[in-house]
Simulated assay, not measured.
Amino acid sequence: MPPRRAVTGRSQEPRQRFVEELRLLRAQKGDSLRQLGNVLGWDSSLFGKMESGQTLGSPEVAQALDQHYGTKDLLLTLWELAAGDPTQFKERYRRYMTLEAEALSLWHYAVSVLPGLLQTEEYANALLSAGGITGEELTRQVEARVGRRSLLDGDDAPRFRAILSEAALRTPLEAADEWRRQLEHLLDMGERRNVIIQVVRQEVGLHALTNTHTMFLRLPEGRTLAWVETGYSGELVQETAAVEKLQLSYDLVRDLALPPAESRKFIMRMLEDVPCDPST
């Protein structure tokens, strides 16, 4: 096994250090990207993107590379450090936003909050504020989120399917009038020809995506990618087998969801329960 190299003279930023190690190890072994892909079973373009810093890949890829190069857990450790870097999350999210704008169709599962493409300005403001964002940064992020909704406008807008957990609809905004507008917005969006909204009732119990916010993107070249997110981090999933596994989970959840027409009735019943503002 090659000895661990001293970090002196090497980048101390986790993502850049990971990229440097990938390039150096492949050069030392004399592999081409194509050879690496053939040996490890992933598309060679993935390794090229990892070496250029466009993506981190997955822990499984890092582990396979460690085994290939005989570096024990060096690359996996660097991957974990880079994945936990908050600046890396921002970079991944920017990459996701670019791909979202190119997608031909999108499908989403919401665990506890409504998807950004369906949020009103008030909902986005309350959600981002709860996350500790304030001042000019809050204004900027709310404007950016509301601006994303234009993605679903126009004759060439992508198809969008949103499956909402009942929990997301049982967590209202503090102001009843703002929550009413949000539910009305969901109903309006559900009438669009390119938007399908479904609800998964709590009574179905645990399922494959119980704690996983997931958005799938089908790109013009035919690839499908997934963005998986928690409240604190997110990951762009590109490896085919991992995406297919997530898609199977999504299909199973879709089978549990109410049909679109029944989902609409469910949201309308919730809207009827929202107290009216006595001043109106």
Rank of each mutant, 00 (worst) to 15 (best):
P59S: 14
P59I: 15
P59M: 13
V61H: 07
V61Y: 09
A62N: 03
A62F: 08
Q63E: 12
Q63P: 01
A64D: 07
A64P: 01
A64I: 07
D66P: 09
D66K: 04
Q67L: 11
Q67M: 04
Q67E: 11
Q67Y: 04
H68L: 14
Y69I: 01
Y69A: 01
G70M: 08
G70A: 04
T71Y: 08
K72G: 05
D73G: 06
L74V: 15
L74H: 07
L74G: 03
L76N: 00
L76D: 01
L76H: 00
L76I: 14
L78F: 04
W79D: 01
W79M: 02
W79E: 03
E80G: 05
E80M: 06
E80Y: 08
A82E: 03
G84P: 05
G84A: 14
D85L: 04
P86V: 09
P86C: 13
F89R: 00
F89P: 00
F89Y: 12
K90I: 09
K90G: 10
E91I: 10
E91W: 00
E91G: 05
E91D: 00
E91Q: 10
R92H: 11
Y93F: 15
Y93T: 11
Y93S: 05
R94K: 10
R95S: 12
M97Y: 03
M97T: 02
T98C: 03
T98I: 04
L99Y: 04
A101V: 03
A101H: 08
E102W: 05
L104W: 11
S105E: 15
S105G: 06
L106C: 03
L106S: 00
L106K: 01
Y109L: 14
Y109E: 05
A110I: 15
V113A: 11
V113L: 10
V113P: 00
L114Y: 02
L114T: 07
P115C: 05
G116N: 04
L117P: 13
Q119R: 04
Q119T: 00
Q119D: 08
T120V: 06
T120G: 04
E121R: 06
E121C: 07
E122F: 12
E122D: 14
N125Y: 09
N125Q: 07
A126T: 07
A126N: 03
L127C: 01
L127K: 12
L128A: 03
S129E: 13
A130Q: 14
G131I: 14
G132I: 00
G132Y: 08
G132M: 11
T134V: 14
E136Q: 13
E136R: 13
E137W: 02
L138V: 01
L138D: 10
T139G: 11
R140G: 04
R140T: 12
V142S: 11
E143I: 04
A144F: 08
R145D: 12
V146A: 07
R148A: 10
R149H: 01
R149T: 15
R149I: 12
S150P: 01
L151R: 12
L151Q: 08
L151T: 13
L152Y: 14
D153H: 08
D156T: 03
D156K: 02
A157S: 02
A157T: 10
P158D: 04
P158N: 08
R159I: 06
R159W: 07
R159F: 14
F160H: 10
F160A: 00
